[in-house]
Design a protein around this nucleic acid. Sequence first.
RNA 1: GGGCCUAUAGCUCAGUCGGUCAGAGCGCGCGCCUGAUAAGCGCGAGGUCGGUGGUUCGACUCCACCUAGGCCCA
Length: 948
Amino acid sequence: MKGKWRDTLNLPKTEFPMRANLPKREPNLLQWWQEQKIYEKMLAKHRQDPPFILHDGPPYSNGHLHLGHAVNKVLKDLLVKYKALQGHYTPFVPGWDNHGMPIERAVVHQDPEFAEIRHDHEKLRDPQVRIRIREKCRAFAQHWVEIQRKEFVRLGVFGDWEKPYLTMSPEFEGGEIEIFADLVEQGYVYRGRMPIHWCPSCRTALAMIEVEYYEKESPSLFFWVPVRDTKGVIDPDVWLVVWTTTPWTLIANRAFAFHPDYDYVVAEVESAQGEHRKVLLAERLLPVVAEIVGWTSYRKLRRIPGRQLEGLTFAHPIFEDRTSPAILADFVTLTEGTGVVHIAPGHGKEDFEIGRKYGLEVFSPVDEAGRFTAEAGPEFQGLFVGKEGSEKAVEVLKRHGHFLHRETLRHTYPHCWRCKSPLIFRATTQWFLSVDHQNLRHRALKAIESVRWHPPETINRIYNSVKERPDWVLSRQRAWGVNIPVFYCEDCGEPLVDPRVMRHVAQIFKQETADAWYRRPVQDLLPPDTRCPHCGGTRFRREDDILDVWFDSGATNLIVLREENGLRWPSDVYLEGSDQHRGWFNSSLMLAMAERGQPPYRAVITHGWTLDEQGRAMHKSLGNVISPQEVIDRYGADVLRLWVTSSDYTEDIRLGPEILARMVDSYRKIRNTYRFMLGNLYDFDPARHRVPYDRMKPLDRFLLHQYSQLLADLERFYENFEFHRVFHRYFNFVVVDLSAFYLDVVKDRLYTWAPDTPERRSAQTVIYELLRGLLVAFAPVLSFTTEEAWQLLPGDHPESVFLADWPRPEASWHNETLAREFQRLLEVREVALRALETARKDQKLIQDRLEAELLLETQDPDLAALLDRYAADLPEFFVVSGVRRVADLPAETPVVEAGENLRVGVQRKAGQKCARCWMWHEAVGQHPEYPDLCPKCIRAVESLRHED
RNA sequence: GGGCCUAUAGCUCAGUCGGUCAGAGCGCGCGCCUGAUAAGCGCGAGGUCGGUGGUUCGACUCCACCUAGGCCCA
């Protein structure tokens, strides 16, 4: 029998479904948010509140979003929504990074129109070709912006999706030129030479991603050169032993590098021919080198720390009239060679950088086709570098008595992605930003200390990367980017580097995009009266180089965060992956410091990488890649958001099947709790039924205390950016305090008491108050689900959860005395539950807890008093049919469990089971009219009757 | 090879200054309920705190090294 009294109960009712079916439901909510303009209303609501600006780091527009993008944007959204609900004006303008090599490469590679360019790089210099490439790149970028926009929106991220910033927009491209002009004006920009990867066969510079590494055979050459200036450190008859795999670069040798911390040794060696000679090299490598070059014996004469060799000079290996100094460098290793490194600043990256430090000449006598120029001297001019040049170099070494030993070596070597031929380093003229001009580096380092870095230890990464970064190479020899606004005089060849001219160009770009650089004739790009400051010439050609894409993204703060966009500079927060310390955090800082003398952010939050469940990076080859789309399609964006929130993003975070399964479980638990709470508010109108605090039951007041503690913790965790703690704290409250305790305990009151009794309304008031606050406090996380539940919340409330106010507990809810009492009662409850479990399992005394009566024995007078004070509420509290405190438990009590100062016994409750509330009561059967009901239920049923 | 960082139960996370700190929730096992029901409740079993050595009366907590993993750089 389904219970004849069932209809007299107040069972929960709600339209909030248990099954979420988020993949179907979420799109409807998205549409509703859009139609109702909830994001706009949220901004409008906080128009007068203090702004909170999170400046979005622009993702690159060349493919679908991956999990890392999703994590990043969800974290941002979480923070922005929290700040909005807390009462901030929070415009979020998303952006995209559009220019650069990957898109240009994809376009040139895929589009048949550019088939020729792939092999003939010269064609790239044709303005018409450049325009075509840029058009295709622009379309390509726009295509992916649209797709990514949809994917971000689907995640539930709020923002100005209709007017994002794009680095390829005309305003942006023009704005970038203005910044460049400022930097020129202040003297930050200079022209210099530096070696870059160069393909002699394609006659072009290569970007890093165009370089492919394969095995190659190279000469492994040992040579020696006599000391010239001993500085009194070594004898004048000592020869320095050096190793190289690129003999042709010896022509450009400008120094020999030693490691400051390694020990070097002067040794007397004997060759196979019986010749004796004093040599200098790293002590640890002496035996290795002796073996390789065939010294039959060696005798160490003196050990010298590398540090003491700085400043000595040695004969140049190729040119007899030159010498090369000894310098110190940390990159010298003892894994191969002699511990002495041949330095050619024009032909190696490290060589270049150490060369800058020592003021060495960037000598690179090689033309575009990889042939030595006249600068290399008559003997080398016209020879191809590589094999031909190396053979010649060896010949010269031999002639000068510098040759020692030669063999071949297989190693990985950079090759051209296009023609697969080996690359060389060749010095080219580039534009630089001086990092030390106007003390920029120093000022940036100071400024770093004033920024809030989260987690705090990340300050080390940004600090080191700024401290050690070389001058910024601003120029790239590519097509898809913002042109460097420089011209060259056709008469004298001098560059025209004029801020006034640049600002003129900027205005044009702002109207027509940077494509105007090639669409217009040169004269149209210049102010009418422009003359060459060197020779007065009036005819110019344009620079073909474009700006590094890091200049684009580094400038976003200056271009986007403007008052006229409703934003503010500097931003409050940057939030990106940990790779951006060397990237965006760095480039943004440098440009902001140079332009405005302040960092562009007040706080910088860094998150880790997304790994699989075993902690390995996700790779196609490992088959462990999970895309955000598949998570959303299968489980919904809220589950993804919950996962992001639950993970400690300051470290690398993991995702896999089990983690996902756990998140789905957690989601269901939260959802069902919302549902149960909503269900029990079906007849509750807060305006009419709310029970004032001082008339609530103590248990209900205790819950408000717990809730106020929860809110304080959540707020603290949000403010500290510790979102995973928000999740754990919230989830624990839902599971432990609500589902397993309060909501379970209070069911009897909600279901069986007459609907309008103060006891029932008191519980409903608490449930209403908690649910309302819980929804708002978790709206940043479960944006869809909280909104869905919010719509079903009774009483007056804003139309969207995002238009609500952050929950503020009443001061009176905080009640330590009450909390202590209930904490003690909860301890008693634990013992009681164990006793009930024993009674059920071992003794088979009861099955249902409602069949039991608890007997509590304590010698602790305080506890005794406490139990007596709450005697009337204890059956509800333990969900049993009776509770009695006894001085001594009867010896025959079958089940006893002991706690601190406490023993709990269990026995069957006397009387009969009430057919309505299922509690056992002695009085059941005594009422003539209601023989199967207990007194409480009789009262309830009677009162219902009177209402009819 | 260098810089920065991580390593606590199957999972996600707590563990302030070294001494009841080895914890929580989930999952799992067993059971109850059938008036949150593709739900709810209870009890229980799970960890030599990545490894090795050291400092200390005592270390998950300090130091060194190793291993595994991540990001950046070379």
